[in-house]
Computed example of a mutant assay.
Amino acid sequence: MAHYLVRARLRPELAEELREKLRRREFLALKPFGQALTHALEGARRDPATGEAVWEEEDYCTPPLAMERAAVLDRYFLDLRVERVEEGEGFRRIAHLPSLWEPPDR
Rank of each mutant, 00 (worst) to 15 (best):
K21R: 14
E16I: 04
D59N: 14
R9N: 06
E20Q: 06
A15I: 01
G51M: 14
E52C: 12
T62P: 05
R46M: 15
L73M: 15
R45L: 10
L41W: 06
T50V: 14
D47P: 05
E58W: 11
R75Y: 03
Y4N: 03
E26D: 08
E68N: 15
A2W: 08
E17K: 00
R46K: 15
E68Y: 09
L14I: 00
D59R: 15
E13K: 12
R7W: 01
L30A: 10
F33W: 13
L10V: 09
H3R: 13
V72M: 04
T38E: 14
R11T: 00
R45C: 13
R24L: 10
P12K: 14
E52I: 06
P12L: 14
C61W: 02
E52S: 03
R19L: 11
A44N: 00
A70Q: 14
P32K: 12
E42M: 13
Q35F: 07
F77Y: 09
E20S: 11
L10G: 05
W55E: 04
L18K: 08
P63Q: 13
G51V: 12
A40T: 03
A71I: 00
Q35D: 07
E56W: 06
M67Q: 10
V54H: 07
P64A: 11
K21Q: 12
E16H: 11
L65N: 01
P32V: 13
K31I: 13
L18A: 14
A8W: 02
P48H: 12
Y76W: 09
Y4D: 01
F77D: 01
M67P: 01
